[in-house]
Design a protein around this nucleic acid. Structure first.
Length: 305
DNA sequence: ACCCAGGGTCGTC
DNA sequence: GACGACCCTGGG
């Protein structure tokens, strides 16, 4: 039997195509597409005219649509869609419990959770998350999305879904083909060298991502990430929280989180002068091991409202 | 037209 | 440790 691969469905001469699969989540009180895709953790999900979202991760292109009290997910998946969806959307985690725990902390948390009640933290591929958040530095979301799209179109692979082309995020080898100049021309700006150098370090296994996945110690993993050009404290924490590394202790502090933490808990009239350490201290005291997800509720709440 | 900010990091002082 | 520079785009 011929093994299916992602190229089969774009081979116009071949008969064999990767079939669409469907998976339905029945109980969706802890799954709201808008909250998940617009809370700032991912850059490759786009809202469609019918209100659904289409996104690409790994070699999968999926459409996520909420209908009544159901979430209907369908699209191109090489593996079993149920496994893929459960892993990516972290469906085995009990968000009801997490939300009730955090709601008890104070009214601020209660309100932010009420606002972003359907947030889930995705399990995104480590390599893609590293590059994506290096690109995010001092940048705005529309431009970040645009750059990642251009990178994928130029260096990734095409997948056809419902007569439209989508492009996988380039692998380490694929992105290694890009020179600094290529990256600059794609609009990365000063991040070109950072992406180039980081790609090189990972390709040469000076930083071995497979080894990194096995490391248990939070600070060890974080310190290794910090050796990558373009990865500072904020980006490292985003990688730790939003990728398959999935460290909920990570508490990324960006302008929005600084703003909301100061507003709610610190009340310093000179927000810029609030020390990062002070914010972290309050975060761990209040949210403990749930700091990361708490950060995401606060971020989403403050940025949208 | 002009200015500012955007999910920060890096080199320099 | 603080401070400015950094590429580029969208919004006021």
């Amino acid at each position: 039997m011929k093994k299916l691969n992602i190229y089969d469905n774009i081979d116009k001469s071949g008969d064999e195509k990767v079939k669409e699969q469907t998976y339905i989540i029945e109980n969706c009180d802890t799954f709201e597409p808008k909250d998940i895709f617009e809370c700032g953790q991912c850059f490759r999900w786009n809202k469609q005219e019918d209100g659904s979202y289409i996104g690409i991760f790994g070699n999968n292109v999926l459409k996520v649509k909420k209908e009544d009290n159901k979430i209907i997910i369908n699209g191109i998946c090489i593996k079993n869609i149920e496994d893929v969806v459960k892993q990516y959307f972290d469906l085995n985690r009990d968000y009801k419990k997490i939300k009730s725990q955090l709601s008890k902390i104070d009214d601020n948390m209660k309100m932010s959770i009420k606002y972003g009640k359907g947030i889930r933290i995705l399990n995104q591929e480590l390599w893609e998350t590293i590059i994506s958040f290096i690109i995010s530095a001092n940048n705005n979301i529309p431009r970040i999305k645009g750059i990642i799209e251009k990178l994928s179109k130029k260096y990734g692979n095409e997948i056809i879904f419902q007569n439209k082309s989508y492009y996988t995020f380039p692998s380490v080898d694929e992105l290694s083909r890009a020179s600094v100049k290529d990256l600059r021309e794609l609009g990365l700006g000063f991040r070109d060298v950072r992406v180039y150098e980081t790609t090189k370090l990972i390709k040469e296994k000076k930083v071995d991502l497979q080894e990194l996945k096995k490391e248990k110690d939070f600070n060890k993993v974080r310190n290794i990430l910090l050796t990558l050009p373009g990865v500072g404290p904020k980006v490292a924490d985003c990688i730790l929280l939003f990728s398959t590394l999935k460290r909920w202790e990570a508490f990324p502090i960006d302008v929005w989180v600084r703003r909301v933490m100061n507003e709610l808990y610190i009340h310093n009239p000179e927000e810029a002068k609030v020390k990062k350490e002070e914010i972290e201290k309050i975060a761990y005291e209040k949210f403990g091991e749930l700091a990361g997800i708490a950060q995401q509720y606060l971020f989403y709440w403050k940025r949208e409202a």
